[in-house]
């Protein structure tokens, strides 16, 4: 499996650390309530198909990356720096 780091280019999967769904970018306000926080920390859409998740180029430049890809075919559609997606 190969992933294109927006900074470093196409690299082997072993350079990256996977965290989970890109929902992690949307941190609720502290007072958003238990349901919003449960949604954020625990519950997942977990699609069989197109998804966005967060990878960390740990053995490379240290960028967190939003990877849009398919969980069934493992095709990677696009990658974007998380700090851009998060703004």
């Amino acid at each position: 499996m190969r992933i294109t780091c927006p900074i470093c280019g196409e690299r082997d999967r072993r350079e990256f650390y996977y965290q989970g769904a890109a929902v992690a970018l949307d941190r609720p306000a502290p007072d958003a309530g238990p349901q919003a926080w449960d949604d954020y920390v625990h519950l997942r859409d977990n699609p069989a198909g197109r998804t966005c998740d967060l990878w960390f180029h740990e053995m490379g430049c240290g960028a967190w990356i939003v990877v849009e890809r398919d969980t069934v075919t493992h095709e990677v559609y696009s990658t974007e720096l998380a700090e851009k997606a998060a703004r």
């Binding site: 650390y17 970018l25 960390f56 700090e83 998060a86």
Partner: peptide, 16 residues
């Protein structure tokens, strides 16, 4: 390692 990763996450993903 975990903390370093965490700091980068918090910065890049939550407090860019």
């Amino acid at each position: 390692g975990q903390v370093m990763r965490h700091l980068e996450f918090v910065h890049q993903c939550l407090k860019p």
